[in-house]
Design a protein around this nucleic acid. Structure first.
Length: 268
DNA sequence: ATCCAGGCAGATG
DNA sequence: CATCTGCATGGA
């Protein structure tokens, strides 16, 4: 067990960061949260004027929690004194986590047309069933383990019609080094992701944003559609995404997450 | 009970 | 190119 501390600022809040919908393997504990990511585990606690992070690897979680990005700067850059202003005020403590690309990819296949509490449950059961036992918790499964499970296994843990997607994508990715994909530009990487069975523009954009930390993307789901239905009446999700990337440029991904969290939590 | 969820593939105009 | 439909599941 290792430990490090982070002084509190308005620009990091562990609750908002975890509850904003970008990640699924966490749960509240007394005074904070327990996080599982890949084969790692951390407990983040509020200790008054600082955050205390107890984990199996301070190096991993320093990077994972993204303390190197200047969120205040980005928030001032994109602030439009309108709805986005309110969304930023509400979610200014969100950090975009540096998640593992493979974990993000399979997680967001499960996320499609699904409720967040269910997504969490399905992912937890898959980790418990197929992931390495780390002593007290299970790692996210390897691609090989996912590929060996079979479609009926994914159906048995409640994946529904996505079971076929999980099975086929896992089998497709065996022997493929998706960590090499980070060398592709955003559009080429999007096409690569969308070539996988069960991954369309929205899931691809979530993987780009949360797994590859590309910020020139704007995933458009049912909530974001609600945010922009007046500004872009009748515009389908994929096209709306293109317009919003154009509008917010290299900070589009951050803007998307602030608006998503605000819309979903506040139901405005 | 009915609706709906971080959508997608496949079929059809 | 655009629009339509079926889809598994269970929380709200």
């Amino acid at each position: 067990m290792e430990s490090f501390e982070i002084p509190k600022t308005p620009y990091f809040d562990i609750g908002a960061t975890l509850e904003c919908g970008q990640v699924f393997r966490f749960k509240p504990i007394d005074g904070g949260y327990k996080i599982n990511a890949l084969g790692h585990m951390a407990e983040v606690r509020d200790s008054g004027d600082r955050w205390i992070v107890d984990s199996d690897s301070s190096e991993f979680f320093n990077r994972y929690l993204d303390f190197d990005t200047d969120y205040g700067f980005i928030q001032r850059e994109v602030d439009d004194k309108a709805l986005l202003s309110e969304a930023i005020a509400f979610g200014k403590g969100i950090h975009i986590l540096r998640q593992d690309p493979t974990e993000a990819l399979f997680s967001f296949i499960i996320s499609q047309n699904n409720h967040i509490p269910r997504i969490k449950g399905i992912i937890e059961r898959i980790c418990d069933g197929l992931g390495d036992d780390m002593g007290g918790y299970h790692a996210f499964p390897t691609v090989e383990a996912l590929a060996s499970a079979g479609e009926s296994y994914f159906a048995s843990v409640g994946a529904g019609y996505r079971a076929a997607y999980l099975d086929r994508v896992a089998k497709t990715l065996v022997g493929e080094d998706i960590y090499e994909w980070k060398n592709l530009d955003t559009e080429a990487l999007r096409l690569k992701l969308m070539s996988l069975y069960g991954i369309g523009r929205k899931v691809a954009d979530c993987v780009l944003l949360f797994g590859f930390n590309r910020f020139d993307v704007f995933p458009v789901d049912t909530w974001i559609k609600k945010v922009f239905e007046e500004e872009y009446p009748g515009v389908p999700a994929d096209k709306m995404s293109v317009l919003l990337v154009k509008k917010y440029g290299k900070y589009a991904g951050f803007v998307q997450q602030w608006l998503f969290y605000y819309k979903r939590e506040k139901k405005v």
